[in-house]
């Protein structure tokens, strides 16, 4: 399910079945010219991943609005804000928080974060529409879904 009216209406009816939130962590920055494209394409790709995972597991996962932050921001402060997001979801019977990111610097704060951090290696490509890249993404999505199911058991 997604954070939109039609889905949330369904959510309210079936709360007890939807116990997992999916939260993409998406950075942005304009200070380093050379990295603008890379950071923006991380945004593209993470959205693809998030929506594909949501499609597969729509009946148990709620995809939240992405968590955006400035690339250079201190993670020591960001993780507090991130935890407050997760805390907010705990006002509903959500049991699992899955965080998706390409940014390895979150790893340092993995223990402090009150959710399960899934770090993915970035796929660099001219376009994410080629058949080969699509197959690759699909395969990774399957593996991530498998991993999320492991949290459920």
């Amino acid at each position: 399910m997604k954070w939109k009216k039609a889905d949330v209406e369904k959510y309210v009816q079936a709360k007890e079945y939807i116990d997992t939130i999916l939260l993409p962590l998406i950075p942005f920055q304009f200070s380093q010219d050379k990295d603008i494209e890379l950071v923006a394409s991380q945004n593209d790709l993470l959205h693809i991943f998030a929506s594909e995972i949501e499609k597969e597991l729509a009946g148990r996962v709620m995809l939240l609005p992405s968590y955006h932050y400035i690339s250079s921001a201190a993670k020591s402060e960001e993780y507090l804000r991130l935890n407050s997001w997760i805390q907010e979801t705990e006002k509903q019977p959500f049991e699992h928080a899955i965080l998706l990111t390409f940014d390895a610097s979150w790893k340092k704060y993995e223990k402090e974060i009150t959710g399960n951090l899934i770090w993915l290696p970035m796929i660099q490509s001219e376009s994410f529409d080629s058949k080969q890249i699509k197959g690759l993404i699909k395969n990774q999505v399957e593996q991530i879904c498998e991993m999320i199911r492991a949290y459920w058991q």
Binding site: M1, K10, I18, E56, L57, A58, G59
Partner: peptide, 8 residues
């Protein structure tokens, strides 16, 4: 699409 809540 599962008829319960829409998973695959």
């Amino acid at each position: 699409v599962c008829k319960h809540l829409g998973c695959m």
